[in-house]
């Protein structure tokens, strides 16, 4: 997908949420706009995804043709009605890591806001990629489940390396991880979407498997999960 359709814009409301801001004062919005514009003119998000057949086992989900298996109940529940899943990896690339390092030296205030803009950007890229893949499957009357990543629920984060190997992600998009399972470049995501025949389990509340479930201020105070309050920032 071209960069433009993967990331046409960065939503200031999402950036405010990452900053933990419940305000939307003009100075801050201006800072967000300026930095978002700088990001959009130099960013090149990279994505890789591939479909695999699944094999349900009593305590895990096996991937046909690969060494990796996905252990745990959460992933089994998510994929209960799926025979296949699309595995994906997404990165904003090394350019953004370096951009963030530069900003930390020249202006820490900008760096903090830039970091939040990039977090909002990687979310947007994941969503846009999902929508595009979803469209392809819709033609076959298939539906994508919610996304799931290493480190969610009881799916170990140590599977990062296996996700990368499965997708040949270092070669394809330059994505690697450390022995502590930290992805580098830093603004990156790996995960999967199950492919289901019906839309039944496609959108379980993302809150239910979140580690902040029950204590998240956004969930408690808003009808829309994870939305900043007030939601009056222009998008």
């Amino acid at each position: 997908m071209p960069a433009q359709s993967l990331l046409p814009e960065i939503n200031p409301a999402e950036v405010l949420r990452y900053l933990g801001c419940r305000c939307s004062c003009d100075d801050l919005l201006e800072q967000i706009r300026t930095l978002s514009a700088e990001i959009l003119c130099r960013i090149r998000p990279r994505t890789v995804f591939r479909e695999f057949q699944l094999n349900m086992k009593p305590h895990s989900v096996e991937i046909v043709g690969a060494t990796m298996a996905l252990p745990g109940n959460d992933i089994r529940n998510l994929l209960a009605n799926c025979h296949h899943a699309v595995f994906f990896a997404v990165t904003l690339g090394m350019e953004m890591d370096s951009f963030l390092r530069q900003k930390q030296l020249s202006n820490m205030g900008d760096a903090l806001v830039l970091d939040a803009c990039l977090s909002a950007a990687i979310d947007a890229v994941c969503n846009n990629l999902r929508n595009s893949v979803q469209e392809q499957y819709a033609a076959q009357n298939c539906f994508l489940t919610a996304g799931f990543s290493p480190g969610y629920g009881d799916l170990p984060i140590s599977l990062q390396q296996d996700f990368l190997a499965l997708l040949d992600a270092q070669r394809k998009i330059g994505l690697t991880c450390t022995s502590e399972s930290i992805l580098i470049p830093q603004k990156s995501v790996t995960g999967l979407w199950g492919i289901a025949d019906s839309p039944g389990n496609t959108a379980p509340s993302r809150c239910n498997s979140c580690s902040m479930h029950g204590k998240c201020p956004y969930q408690l105070e808003s009808s829309r999960p994870c939305d900043p309050l007030p939601t009056d920032a222009p998008s």
């Binding site: 933990g20 305000c23 800072q31 820490m108 205030g109 903090l112």
Partner: peptide, 17 residues
Amino acid sequence: KGTLFLPQLINAAAASQ
């Protein structure tokens, strides 16, 4: 007090720097 947020705090700190 919650009338001002982290970005403003850090912008102030950056100016002070």
